[in-house]
Amino acid sequence: MRPLCVLCGMLVLVGCRQDMHDQPKFRPYRPTDFFGDGRSARPQVAGTVARGQLEEDTLLSSGKTGAAFADAFPVEVDEKVLRRGGERFRIYCSPCHGALGRGDGMIVRRGYRQPSSFHVDRLRAQPAGYFFDVISHGFGAMPDYAAQIPVKDRWAIVAYVRALQLSQNAAMADVPPDKRGELEPAPETP
């Protein structure tokens, strides 16, 4: 009888072990004692070029041709790219720049330094590469977004910013005659 009791007790206790739940392996963000900084994810060794990181196309990776900002896109801009740019703009840019790029986003209303509107002459005259550079490296109070937005998405956002600039400075004559009927009257601005 007694061995049976011990066996039953062991069976019950075996169920309490969590070895398989918590395996001695590293999943993303799991800490370690092995490295001084406690991180199991290691930075790239200096000089490493991972797949997809080689910057062969200077226009694509810097927005420049030669020393000057280029007013050209390294990717073909179609409706898909513009929609993607709009979506990414609303995620990463609109908190400060506002949905229309007027510099009146929620974070600005909470006290962050106000960015310039995209619709001033200075920014309307800037080439596309300039906007790519600002997203990649920041400008004034604006931090860089290189870590948050991949290169192609940055270009999609630039394309969308261009579309925003057009939309806020357009006349009825710019709209194809057959599309004019779809336009809604402008809402009252407070």
Binding site: P28, G111, Y112, A141, P143, A147, Q148
Partner: peptide, 30 residues
């Protein structure tokens, strides 16, 4: 938006925990 901080959620197994720099994007001033 969720993706402002959890940047890898659409392309990776892990949603991505933002680096401190993402916090400082706003909290350098706010």
């Amino acid at each position: 938006d969720c993706r402002y901080c959890h940047t890898s959620v659409e392309v990776s197994a892990t949603a991505g925990l933002p680096p401190t720099k993402t916090c400082m994007n706003c909290h350098s001033q706010i």
